[in-house]
């Protein structure tokens, strides 16, 4: 596909997204806001799994940390959520850094298991520290803006999503991004040419935790009630399925996956929790038959006629 065509498509897509509040009813606008939350979550998880090869199960837990820290601070100390949101993100980043330093040296399956354990611990603490978190009853938190407007919230979420995607795109195209990809491609080779692979992974882990914490805070101050469900494995699993089905290791993959699965879940609501099972099956099929996900399939279709060697590179270094 020609570059100009691609840009035109992008502009049309963005135009539609910006107009969504005028096109959707109240309920679907709510779905759109949740979708944006998932777009941020899947994109930041993709930074880990898709660009540095670390399959973390703690991403939802980091969002919950962000939401609860921001929520608790704004409730108990009456600080504006606009400020506590940042605190939530910073605390999530600090936990991310700690967990990263603790287990990124191990890598691989050990990383996954440790993050799984961490995620469960966060879940249990939130459930049981009733005094602070209100346990399964859920914690009521103030609105981010001080007034309730879905349209306004949609635009805030959209702006944040744009900024984060833009930041991730810049990061991936930067020298840091190239280091990420080298570690993903071959850790041993990367370290043999001077790349501190542990440091690279800790940086990616911390950044993605910070983003998850921020997104979690935004989510909480929109829903106005946060529950331990946020840190549950089914929540984590949604993020994982979205990234895989959309296409890991691409910028657009998690966006496509989040939109696709979030809209699909609305239609298969009636099956209750079974929709997760369905997503699991789809994910497995995708991994087996179309490892590039939706985006990979799209690229295959649009690029099949061109020289297979001329694959678009994502870095800024080009001849």
């Amino acid at each position: 596909m020609k570059k100009s065509n691609k840009n035109l498509l992008l502009v049309i897509f963005l135009g539609i997204v910006v107009c969504l509040p005028f096109l959707l009813d109240d309920y679907w606008l709510h779905v759109a806001i949740l979708t944006l939350f998932y777009v941020i979550m899947a994109s930041s998880w993709n930074l880990l799994a898709g660009y540095t090869g670390q399959v973390s199960f703690a991403h939802a837990a980091f969002a919950a940390i962000g939401a609860y820290i921001s929520g608790i601070l704004s409730v108990q100390m009456s600080i504006s959520p606009l400020i506590t949101l940042l605190f939530g993100s910073v605390i999530a980043a600090i936990f991310g850094l700690g967990l990263g330093l603790l287990c990124l040296k191990m890598g691989g399956i050990y990383l996954s298991l440790t993050t799984l354990g961490f995620s469960e611990i966060v879940h249990i603490i939130i459930k049981n520290e009733y005094e602070i978190t209100r346990g399964t009853m859920g914690l009521e938190v103030p609105n981010l803006l001080g007034f309730y407007s879905k349209t306004a919230y949609f635009y805030i979420m959209l702006l944040v999503t744009f900024i984060i995607i833009f930041f991730l795109a810049k990061l991936i195209k930067s020298d840091h991004g190239l280091k990420f990809k080298s570690v993903l491609n071959d850790e041993l080779a990367a370290s043999s040419i001077g790349i501190d692979t542990v440091k690279v992974r800790v940086i990616a882990f911390t950044i993605s935790s910070a983003i998850a914490g921020f997104a979690g805070g935004l989510y909480g101050h929109y829903l106005l009630l946060i529950t331990p469900e946020m840190s549950s494995l089914s929540q984590m699993f949604m993020i994982l399925a979205m990234t895989i089905i959309g296409g890991m290791g691409t910028l657009s993959g998690p966006i496509a996956g989040a939109v696709f699965l979030q809209v699909l879940s609305e239609y298969i609501r009636i099956f209750g929790k079974f929709h997760l099972l369905l997503f699991g099956v789809i994910s497995l099929l995708v991994i087996k038959f179309a490892p590039g996900g939706i985006v990979g399939l799209y690229r295959k279709i649009t690029q099949s006629k061109t020289d297979p060697l001329k694959i678009e590179t994502q870095s800024k270094y080009d001849y």
Binding site: K181, D186, A190, I195
Partner: peptide
Amino acid sequence: PFPELTCLENIMVSIIG
């Protein structure tokens, strides 16, 4: 070599390292 990176990027990693 890093299979999914271009030849130029492969060398670039050394330079930024």
